[in-house]
Amino acid sequence: LLLIIAGSALGVLVMRVAGLATALRARESLQRGVLPAEDMFQGMMLAVGGGLLLLPGFISDVLGLLCLLPFTRRLAARKMRERAEAQAMRQRAFQDAPFQAQPRDDGHRPNVIEGEYERRDK
């Protein structure tokens, strides 16, 4: 019971400290003109780890600790970046297909004559 309470207290502490630190790093990155994607991912992993520590149970605590360890966060970030790059390459491959019909922008319009008609039967 004491381990569950200690794990929950650690989870709350990690979520508060990590959230503040992530917000400060993201603000500094934005002031430098750099997109804080890596900082945001690290903060998200810390928040998930803290949330998992809040849940009672051995498995959630182990997963929460894995999210808190720096080398597992870097490994997860690298894997997710590789997956995102592969997904972008797949989308780009379908987007740049050579046989894809492109709309022509050479000033040609279809031959359409607008008007009214009246039918006269003899």
Rank of each mutant, 00 (worst) to 15 (best):
Ile5Leu: 13
Gln42Tyr: 00
Phe94Tyr: 14
Ala86Lys: 12
Asp106Lys: 07
Leu20Trp: 09
Ala88Ser: 06
Lys122Pro: 13
Val62Met: 12
Pro36Cys: 03
Met15His: 09
Leu69Ala: 10
Met40Lys: 10
Arg81His: 00
Glu38Pro: 10
Ile113Arg: 11
Gln87Phe: 05
Leu55Gly: 00
Leu20Ser: 01
Ala93Gly: 09
Thr22Met: 00
Arg119Thr: 13
Arg16Val: 08
Ala9Glu: 01
Ile5Glu: 06
Ala93Glu: 15
Gly50Glu: 00
Ile113Lys: 12
Ala18Gln: 08
Glu82Arg: 08
Leu65Gln: 10
Pro103Tyr: 11
Leu2Cys: 11
Glu82Ile: 13
Gln100Val: 07
Arg104Tyr: 11
Ile59Gly: 04
Leu65His: 10
Val34Glu: 01
Cys67Gly: 02
Leu68Val: 03
Arg74Asp: 05
Leu20Lys: 13
Arg27Gly: 00
Gln100Tyr: 00
Arg16Thr: 11
Gln91Pro: 05
Arg83Ser: 07
Phe41Glu: 02
Leu68Arg: 06
Leu3Pro: 05
Glu118Thr: 15
Gly57Asn: 06
Phe94Val: 14
Gly7Ala: 02
Phe58Gln: 05
Asp106Gln: 11
Arg16Gly: 09
Gly33Tyr: 04
Asp39Gly: 10
Arg32Asp: 06
Gly7Val: 04
Ala23Glu: 03
Phe99Thr: 08
Ser60Val: 04
Asn111Ser: 13
Asp106Asn: 11
Gln102Cys: 05
Val12Cys: 12
Gly57Val: 01
Arg25Ala: 12
Ala97Asn: 11
Pro103Ser: 04
Leu35Gln: 09
Val48Ile: 15
Pro103Ala: 07
Gly107Thr: 03
Leu65Ser: 10
Leu69Trp: 08
Ser60Trp: 02
Thr72Glu: 06
Leu30Val: 12
Gly7Ser: 10
Tyr117Val: 07
Ile4Ala: 15
Asp121Arg: 02
Leu55Cys: 07
Glu28Asn: 12
Arg74Trp: 15
Leu46Tyr: 06
Leu69Val: 00
Ala9Ser: 10
Leu10Lys: 01
Lys122Ile: 07
Phe41Tyr: 03
Arg90Tyr: 10
Arg104Thr: 14
Leu1Ser: 11
Phe41Trp: 00
Gly64Glu: 05
Gln87Ser: 08
Gln95Lys: 11
Ser8Val: 02
Gly115Met: 09
Glu38Lys: 05
Leu24Ala: 15
Gly11Glu: 01
Glu82His: 13
Leu13Arg: 03
Lys122Gly: 11
Arg92Trp: 14
Ala21Met: 11
Pro70Gln: 08
Glu85Gln: 04
Arg74Met: 15
Leu52Asp: 01
Val12Leu: 09
Met15Asp: 02
Gly115His: 10
Val62Phe: 05
Met15Ala: 07
Leu10Arg: 03
Leu66Trp: 01
Gln100Ser: 08
Gly43Phe: 02
Ser8His: 06
Leu66Gly: 01
Arg32Trp: 07
Ala86Cys: 04
Ala93Asn: 10
Ala93Phe: 14
Lys122Gln: 11
Ala101Cys: 10
Val17Pro: 07
Ala9Asn: 03
Asp96His: 01
Ser60Asp: 06
Leu20Ile: 06
Ala101Arg: 06
Leu20Glu: 05
Gln42Leu: 09
Glu116Asp: 02
Arg27Ile: 04
Leu53Asn: 04
Phe58Arg: 13
Arg73Asn: 12
Ala47Glu: 05
Glu114His: 13
Met89Thr: 06
